[in-house]
């Protein structure tokens, strides 16, 4: 079974946050907890301004630091290469929160354990898409075999843009069709 991951088409994303809300609803997350987040970055000086939206979640890294660091084995790889979290093993030590370079794992105050995107494993097992994928009105998000997604959506896909940590550290299973501003590492952007 090949490595599974998300594809995100930045060129089409309008920042509507439907994916973020669908994820929050599906996982019944409380105020302040998000497993998927849509961020808006802008930069430049008028009239040369630019920016982009980024829908970001767990990148299900092939060399995940959260998995390597977890003292209990709660963070683990599933057969499809996605990073899954066993709630019964988690002791809420928060070490994964220090380890993940994308700051993905969230501490769930009401449960005293960590939570994160599980790619809606239950929906996928039932033959459906993750909630975020089906919620996107622009069809910017896809989930599937990384190699097949690459074949389908082109060769100009990247797993690292200017606002993301280096992909070298954890090998994120993420494919982004990025715009010129996101690809320019010298172009300074700020989250707005």
């Amino acid at each position: 079974m090949g490595q599974k991951g998300f594809y995100f088409n930045m060129l089409e994303c309008k920042g509507c946050k439907a994916c973020q809300i669908a994820c929050k609803d599906k996982n019944d997350l409380k105020v302040g907890e998000l497993y998927r987040k849509v961020m808006n970055f802008e930069g430049g000086i008028y009239p040369n301004v630019g920016g982009f939206y980024l829908s970001t979640s767990c990148n299900h890294c092939a060399e995940a630091k959260c998995v390597a660091g977890c003292p209990t084995g709660a963070m683990h790889y599933a057969e499809d290469g996605t990073v899954q979290h066993n709630k019964d093993l988690c002791i809420g030590c928060k070490y994964c929160m220090w380890n993940c370079p994308y700051s993905v794992p969230q501490y769930l105050e009401d449960k005293n354990i960590i939570g994160k995107c599980d790619t809606c494993k239950d929906l996928r097992d039932a033959g459906e898409n993750p909630a975020c994928v089906d919620a996107c009105p622009m069809r910017c998000l896809k989930f599937g075999d990384i190699d097949e997604l690459k074949k389908e959506y082109g060769t100009d896909l990247v797993n690292e843009i200017s606002v993301l940590p280096s992909a070298e550290a954890t090998k994120p299973s993420l494919l982004i069709k990025a715009n010129v501003y996101a690809l320019d590492f010298n172009y300074k952007v700020k989250e707005v």
Partner: peptide, 25 residues
Amino acid sequence: MHLGKPFSAIKALYQFGSSWLSREI
């Protein structure tokens, strides 16, 4: 006191082979 589930702390001993935290404990 730092743990969300202190009574399950024993589970932190499971991953000596890969986790620095487990080794420390």
